[in-house]
């Protein structure tokens, strides 16, 4: 069976599986208190990150949110440094000062992530102006959730990017949840109609599990930005399997049902291509084992580290 799948799909599945298994390892490790910060898991949403990042090069820069492990990996961040960062060790990508919520790996174009909703959207707009002023043919991508759309700075950012025709791709990862509050209880407007009001092209992908469609759409939109086009706006519907923050499930807490998740499981690529997944498990496991071993062996930062890099 496996040889009928093309190489591209295999790469996408491998990435998706890698992210899922890393986060499952985080869940496994969490009771040990070795992970030194809150974790917002992307389990269920990984195909969005993997598909979006497929056509990106290290020159394309991305700003994301506190639910950022998937983007760090999909954008090319190194696994051992990720795991050491989650462990709060010196070998972490930011030496333990970032933890899970502020991941950044500028060398691969992963510029930053924020724990304050919507706050990295303006950073992408500024970077897009810099790209334009400097004549760099690069795309700037900002990832945010449906909750960010309720913040004023989202509106301010769409307006400015459209006004100055800046090369930025706005991506709304719409899981229809802000912490524990469903979208219908928060928004009196239609997200897409609202975005169109800024004279920005909009695209919507209903199935956030469709890796190929997400990757193809991303490629097309990024190419438009790199060739001098103005801002683009993309919404991808997806679903968060785990609780807002932490390693657990929360289907018994009353705000959503397990049946809701099961609809998404039906198209989850890791179940759909279970045969491929089975073949990849051993490689994925050994990659993660190496990352965990690196984190375990890395020393804890000390007082001198506390005081460096303030300026």
């Amino acid at each position: 069976m496996a040889n009928t799948h093309n190489e591209r799909l295999k790469r996408l599945i491998y990435q998706t599986l890698l992210i899922r298994r890393i986060e499952e390892r985080v869940i496994e490790l969490y009771p040990s208190d070795k992970i030194q910060s809150p974790v917002h898991l992307s389990i269920g949403q990984e195909p969005v990150a993997v598909g979006l990042c497929e056509p990106m090069t290290a020159r394309d820069v991305l700003f994301t949110t506190y639910r950022g492990h998937a983007y760090y990996v999909a954008k090319g961040g190194k696994l051992p440094e990720l795991m050491a960062e989650l462990y709060g060790r010196k070998g972490g990508v930011s030496g333990g000062k970032a933890g899970s919520m502020h991941l950044a790996a500028p060398e691969v174009g992963m510029m930053g992530s924020s724990a304050v909703v919507a706050s990295t959207i303006p950073h992408a707009v500024g970077a897009a102006l810099a790209a334009k002023v400097r004549g760099d043919k690069q795309a700037i991508i900002t990832i945010f959730g449906d909750g960010a759309i309720e913040e004023g700075v989202y509106h301010e950012s769409l307006n400015f990017a459209s006004l100055h025709k800046l090369p930025v791709l706005f991506v709304c990862e719409n899981n229809a949840l802000a912490v524990h509050t469903p979208l219908r209880e928060r928004q009196a407007f239609d997200i897409v109609t609202h975005a169109k009001a800024y004279n920005i092209n909009t695209t919507v992908i209903e199935d956030g599990n469709d890796l190929i469609k997400i990757a193809d759409t991303s490629a097309k939109l990024l190419e438009s930005l790199r060739s001098g086009g103005g801002p683009e706006w993309l919404m991808i519907k997806t679903y968060r399997y785990k609780e807002h923050v932490g390693p657990g499930d929360d289907f018994d807490s009353g705000y959503r049902s397990r049946a809701e998740m099961e609809k998404w499981l039906a198209t989850d690529p890791l179940y759909r291509w279970a045969d491929l997944v089975k073949e990849m498990e051993a490689d994925v496991k050994s990659e993660i084992d190496r990352a965990v071993a690196f984190a375990e062996a890395s020393p804890a930062p000390g007082l001198a580290d506390l005081l460096t890099d303030v300026e």
């Binding site: 820069v61 700003f63 500028p106 510029m111 930053g112 706050s119 990295t120 959207i121 303006p122 950073h123 992408a124 707009v125 500024g126 970077a127 897009a128 102006l129 810099a130 790209a131 002023v133 400097r134 760099d136 700037i140 700075v153 301010e156 950012s157 400015f160």
Partner: peptide, 14 residues
Amino acid sequence: IMTGFALGAALKGL
């Protein structure tokens, strides 16, 4: 936005 914009612009060399 125009303050956050400065951060993004600075990260890209301005």
